[in-house]
Amino acid sequence: MSGWAIRGELILNCNCTVFCPCVVSLGKHPPTEGYCQAWAGVRIDEGHYEGEDLSGLNVGLVLEIPGLMARGNWKAAAYIDERASEAAYDGLIKIFSGQAKGTTGLFRVLVSEFLGAERAPVSYTNEGKKRRLIVGKAIKGEVEPVRGANPDEDIVVKNTEYWMGSDITVATATQGRVRAYGRVWDFDGRSAEICQIDWSGPAAEAAA
């Protein structure tokens, strides 16, 4: 099984005061604060990298973008599930640094400084509609969908060209705390997103 693929769910919480404008503007509109600071969590329900199984693993991310998302100069760090095998760890680093091309290949262009990658206990759990991400002492986050007129139906921005996925559930953070790489962020009550992901990329020789 060559190439790579990940199916699962992603949550993200940033410092925007209202729903992230990057989703519909595709990075052409600046974040509400003029810059973006964010953490994200990925739950891999099914996945592989060059034949190595990634299913059941979780990943945490810290992102910092100085202005318009599309202009690049991002800083990023990745926390890889400590349960990952060596091959899975290496594969996930290649995927989330953009080296593996495919869906996340834009990271290689947009991220100018990769702050680091390390193994960590990464817990991604659901409690009703709430999603909770805990990455050691680095990230403690919890997001939930914004309530709509019909409380049983989430507010979803559909059919976007957003790189993560076309349908984004509008959410808010009930907790959003980062203590990593000198960053101390508290984004409780700020913008959040929930997205079902279906990412993939080419075989290693094609990604070289």
Rank of each mutant, 00 (worst) to 15 (best):
A76M: 14
F107C: 03
E52S: 10
E86D: 14
L63W: 06
K137W: 06
G34D: 10
L68F: 14
V62R: 03
S112G: 12
L92F: 04
V122L: 02
L68D: 09
L115A: 09
G98Y: 00
A76N: 03
D81I: 06
I139H: 01
V42G: 00
P31L: 01
R43N: 13
A138Q: 13
I80G: 03
E82K: 11
T103W: 04
Y124W: 13
I134P: 00
I95V: 14
A77Q: 06
S123Q: 14
Y79S: 05
C36I: 11
R108K: 13
P31E: 08
G136F: 06
P66L: 13
N73D: 15
R71W: 13
N58Y: 04
R43M: 11
V135M: 04
Y35H: 14
T32A: 02
E118M: 06
L133G: 01
K137T: 15
S112I: 02
L63Q: 10
A38H: 05
E86C: 00
K75N: 12
G56T: 11
E118W: 05
M69W: 14
G91K: 02
T125G: 00
S123W: 03
V59F: 05
K130T: 12
L63M: 15
G102S: 08
G128I: 11
T104H: 01
K130W: 07
R71E: 15
G141N: 05
G67E: 14
T104R: 05
P30Y: 02
